[in-house]
Structure formats: structure tokens, C-alpha cells
Amino acid sequence: MGHRKEKDEYLENLWYMREHQTEVLTELQAKMNGQYVQERMDELVSEGLVDLDLAGGKVRLSVEGEKHARRLVRAHRLAERLIHDAFGDNFESGACEFEHIMNLEIIDSICTVLGHPKECPHGLPIPPGDCCTRSAEMAHSAVIPLTKLKIGEEARIAYVNCANDERLHKIDTLQIRPGSVIKLQQTYPTYVVECEGTHVALGEELASSISVWRSSDSSVDASAASSAGVGYGRRQGKGRGWGHGLRRRLGLCRKEN
């Protein structure tokens, strides 16, 4: 089991290539940024994780490899959601390290706390786990869809499921993005929210693609933050930011004391 982390990279890239139907060897080599080593590939083949057709230049995950890759990708994309969006931090390497360590239970509990997100921040699908089908566990989620808020309630946006780039740009220009405080004003006949000083009407689909921190969990300083695009929408500096509630839940706060 040498070079595990390195081999995981191959499996992850193959998963991505499967999603985009570009399962050719040259593409994999390009994706590995010049760090492609044939020896690793041979090992993966002999472990039965990858099917390689050298003559045809085709390469793809085996059934067993798919299982493995699915777990890796799920962990990676959940970790991205957690670190980039939910915590609002920007440690690039964080998600990459996560996927190798975590066991299934931790992954599922992160998934639950985050309200079973369907996509990673880049808009790629997160393969669902067992916890997602048992969605009764929503009660333990720290993150809920915007549509579950009460009218007049304020919450901080945890993440937005962006099915496409167009949606991402549209709502990002209106400052509906992780960290902004959003207030649900009305649900019928149309969703109306207040975000960064502007009132915005949203269709149902768009409204339910926005996920927010459950108010008891987030340290929203509601009165100070919303009501103006000129407000302090986001946490300033370090310290007990708005991810604090979540960190406490996950037991990640010890260092802060």
C-alpha cells in the first residue's frame, strides 16, 4: 500500500474524467501536471482499481476503483464545502489532506451538519452517502435551506448550490454568497429576501438552492450586519467568526480556548 496518497490523485482525476466523459490516457496525463508515473498506474491496474487499454489509449475506473474513488471524491468535495464556504477560510491544501484521513462516519457527520449538500463549491456533484438517504437526520443539521427559515428571520449564508456558472454569476453580483447575511421577507407568491441592503425577489428553485446557518448555531450579529450593502457583511479579521458554532460542534475549537 505504498504511495497511497499519490494513487488517490489518479483515482480522483479518473472520477472527474468520468463525469466529463473524457476517459483517455492523454487527458489523465495532462491532469496530473507532468507528475504521471507509469509505475503507479501499473500498481493501480494490478490492484484491480483501474482498467487500462494501452493500445486504445483508454483508461477508466473498475467497479472496485469506482467505489474507492467515490468515497475520496465525496470526502474531498464535502471538505471543500466545509472549509471554503462554511468556514470562509482559504486553505487551498486543506481539502486535499482531508480526503485521505477521514473515515466514513466522520464524513457522514460532516455531511449531516452541512445539511447534505448536493454540490461542491465549484458546482460539481457530491456523491450522496448513506446519511443523505436517511435524511431524517436533518434535525442535526447546522445548515438548512433558506426556504426553511421563518418569515422575518435572518441567517448567514453557508453555501449556494450553483447548478451552472450563469446562476453563480447572477447571484454573486447581487452579493448573495457565503458569509452574507440574508433575511427572509416573504415566501408567497414569490420569495423575497433582503441581502446586503437590497431586496431581491427569487424563484423557488433559486431560493431553495441557498443554504444558511441555523440561527442558534451561527453567531450572526443580526442587527449590525444586514440591512445595507454597505454593512459589515462578513466577519472582520480572525477570531470567533461565524463558523464558530460549527467548529464547536465538530470539536475543532479546542485550540482557541
Binding site: E166, R167, K170, I171, L174, T190, V192, T198, H199, V200, A201, L202, G203, E205, L206
Partner: peptide, 11 residues
Amino acid sequence: ACVDYIQELPR
């Protein structure tokens, strides 16, 4: 395909 509805409301 359905297009997202999003509309800013003036003050």
C-alpha cells in the same frame, strides 16, 4: 429549459 428568476426590487 427554465431560467432562474431573480429580480432586484428598488427601495
